[in-house]
């Protein structure tokens, strides 16, 4: 069973890889635009930290780590999650999801792996570059344990992102015109670019609650950055792992319920 799905995954990856190789120049154009967008994430930080050495307990180097995680996850989102799931919306609207449902494999697996954009992985490289720069500024390296925890959190963050995406896409079964819902999702993700403690002062901490429990953006970027710095409480780590597992479970349930609502549009 697992081997069959692994084989399917390699097939899907190979198809996307071949397609990407046809457009090799995209590596440079995507890379260039990725660097440009990173600059927009950094520009406010430069301006902020030119007037203050520290904001809500985060120095420039530490805040840079959060931006690094934001960029890295954006790469995962745009390279591995977004392209497939935008395809699902298209399938639902045109009614071609029939062909996916007919295949003898899990539909969620098939739609989630149908398309990858490997060149977008450039964002991941940029994120790694930011980590190195940040630790150079901090004048020390991450602890091995911290690095290990942050790798674990990379896993949970990816699961969270993916689950949130599945939830968004499930909405497409009910309201068909959601191609810009995907855009909405990306712009809400923008809130993850600052350390989550900056939200403390807004609306008496209500925003912090929202971004920790409802849309767990804080878990995705701030937690791994704190883990790298070796100051993430163990309880938060457990919370992140349990929370992301719960989110994934809910997303799976919702997907199964929603797919029951699918009415082939064209035929």
């Amino acid at each position: 069973m697992v081997r069959r799905y692994l084989r399917l995954l390699t097939v899907q990856l190979k198809a996307s890889g071949l397609q990407a190789l046809q457009y090799r120049a995209d590596f440079f154009t995507d890379g260039f635009t990725s660097l440009c967008w990173v600059f927009t994430a950094l520009a406010p930080l430069f301006v902020v930290y030119s007037s203050r050495p520290e904001v809500e307990g985060w120095s420039f180097g530490e805040a840079l780590l959060v931006v690094g995680w934001f960029t890295l996850l954006q790469g995962i989102l745009e390279g591995a999650i977004n392209p497939s799931l935008t395809g699902v919306v298209e399938h639902i609207r045109k009614g071609t999801l029939d062909f996916v449902l007919l295949k003898p494999a899990d539909a969620q697996f098939l739609v989630s792996t149908q398309r990858f954009l490997p060149w977008r992985a450039f964002n991941v490289l940029t994120g790694l570059g930011l980590f190195i720069y940040a630790f150079l500024l901090l004048g020390r390296g991450p602890s091995p344990l911290g690095l290990l925890t942050s790798l674990l959190l990379l896993g949970t963050s990816t699961v969270l992102l993916y689950s949130l995406w599945i939830l968004t896409v499930s909405a497409a079964f009910f309201v068909v015109r959601v191609d810009n819902l995907t855009y909405l999702f990306t712009s809400i993700f923008d809130f993850a670019r600052w350390p989550s403690s900056v939200f403390k002062g807004v609306a008496k901490g209500a925003l912090t609650l929202v971004f920790t429990y409802v849309i767990p953006l804080a878990l995705m970027t701030t937690f791994p950055a704190e883990a790298m710095l070796g100051r993430l409480p163990a309880l938060s780590l457990v919370g992140a792992v349990v929370g992301s597992a719960a989110f994934a479970w809910v997303a799976r349930r919702v997907w199964i319920r929603s797919i029951g609502h699918y009415t082939s549009a064209s035929s």
Binding site: N180, S187, F199, K200
Partner: peptide, 30 residues
């Protein structure tokens, strides 16, 4: 409805608003 979603996705000013509010909490900036 589509336009409304576009409007909702204009989060950038709000994203930056919370950052600057946190910065200005202790003392004003300029």
């Amino acid at each position: 409805a589509e336009m409304f979603v576009w409007v909702l996705s204009t989060t950038m000013p709000l994203v930056n608003m919370v950052l600057w509010m946190a910065v200005a909490k202790s003392a004003p900036v300029g």
